[in-house]
């Protein structure tokens, strides 16, 4: 078992109903859910791996492959949608050269859509990790990325 996973799982008794909290804890630690981690969780609870997968894949919060260092989340909640969130998404896709749900090849960024982040007054909104950018127009896509580049 990977050290990281082991440490996280030691905080759980291993009851079947702990599977979702376990998945969340492991993903918090590693950033996604590698195959070995799923196996470790299954072993820890004593249920088949397929059962853990079945549960995990149902929920959109879980990722099964490596993700970018910073996650760019474009809000496409209702308020952001009617205030042009999709155009901002298009601009980011173009600027980053990837589609929503993908990572940049250098794994610096991942791009995804989210629903209402609670800042509708600032719609349309983009979050980069915990930083919020509001009242955006498409041409600001570049600016958002530049400001969020960990090197800058």
């Amino acid at each position: 078992m990977q050290e990281q996973t082991k440490k996280v799982l030691s905080g759980f008794e291993g009851k079947p109903n702990e599977v979702i909290p376990m998945l969340q804890a492991v993903q918090n630690e590693i950033g996604y859910l590698p195959e070995e981690a799923i196996r470790d969780i299954a072993d820890h609870i004593g249920i088949p791996e397929s059962k853990v997968y079945g549960t995990a894949t149902f929920y959109s919060q879980f990722y099964f492959s490596r993700r970018g260092d910073r996650s760019v989340k474009v809000c496409l909640g209702t308020a952001c949608h009617v205030r042009g969130g999709m155009q901002v998404m298009d601009a980011l896709e173009r600027e980053m050269g990837i589609k929503a749900g993908e990572n940049t090849p250098d794994y610096k960024f991942s791009l995804e859509r989210v629903n209402c982040v609670g800042s509708c007054a600032l719609a349309p909104v983009v979050m980069v990790d915990d930083d919020v950018f509001g009242r955006l127009v498409p041409k600001q896509a570049k600016e958002v990325l530049e400001k969020s580049d960990p090197k800058v």
């Binding site: 549960t55 929920y59 879980f62």
Partner: peptide, 19 residues
Amino acid sequence: GAGAFVCGESTALVMSIEG
């Protein structure tokens, strides 16, 4: 929760807590 709208429905929510 882990990001599933249908889990707001009462019986689905219960299933979800049960793992």
